[in-house]
Design a protein around this nucleic acid. Sequence first.
DNA 1: TTCCCTGCAAAGCATTTGCACTTTT
DNA 2: AAAAGTGCAAATGCTTTGCAGGGAA
Lengths: 132, 132
Amino acid sequence: MLRERGLRLTPQRQLILEAVHELGHATPETVHNAVRERVAGVNITTVYRTLELLEELGLVNHTHLSHGSPTYHPAGEDQHVHLVCRSCGSIEEMDPAVLLPVCDRLRDERSFRVDVGHVSLFGVCGKCKESE
Amino acid sequence: MLRERGLRLTPQRQLILEAVHELGHATPETVHNAVRERVAGVNITTVYRTLELLEELGLVNHTHLSHGSPTYHPAGEDQHVHLVCRSCGSIEEMDPAVLLPVCDRLRDERSFRVDVGHVSLFGVCGKCKESE
DNA sequence: TTCCCTGCAAAGCATTTGCACTTTT
DNA sequence: AAAAGTGCAAATGCTTTGCAGGGAA
């Protein structure tokens, strides 16, 4: 996959991709920490560059959960919508199929193609609702 | 509204709130520019502080559209979902009613209350799709 | 040799904080 | 006088860029 484009499979890239898979939801910083637990000396710059590359290659996707840092997750198979609790910060996942009717409608009526693997819905989760 | 909390209605606050209403979708920077067209010398720091305050008071809300800057919009009346084109960056608005079935389902099945006025869907708009 | 990658340091932005000064009550 | 608000400059935090060295094709 990398080879086809004349790119190289380096230890760093491998580790970073693995980290994204392990973490499920990973910010650049999270990835950096995870990688450093295994090998010393991997630079945060490389993490940023690699995540960008992996996204170009379609191996990971990213979403913006709340404020600041983008969150990366493995692409493909397990696409999901994120439910982000703005009270406790927890992230649940959801089958994107639930959104299909909406997406179809947007495509037909507004010619807008929703990137379903990239959706985050903000709100309050059950636990936090109780304790309010 | 401000008075009740011992707070003051200053020209800056007034101008900033007006700017948010005029702009519809406003980043701190956009607000700053808009305000400066009218009066010189309003500091960006004040814009940040005021937007935060206005949000606490429930007069504005903010969403995260794509990368970086939060986008503020007037609270209440015209709640809407944002359709963000990741190709050209355009922002369309949509009636949140389209999402109601999904929200109801999430509430019933996962006890998650979606904040409908805070939703952004990313994807590609009609124009960009054509020119791809 | 050429091209790709990485690390390091520096630069860039957006946002926040500390502090002194001004304004309102 | 006390409390609140503002501006300015500095600090912070995250991300990007430029560049030199190292390694694979």
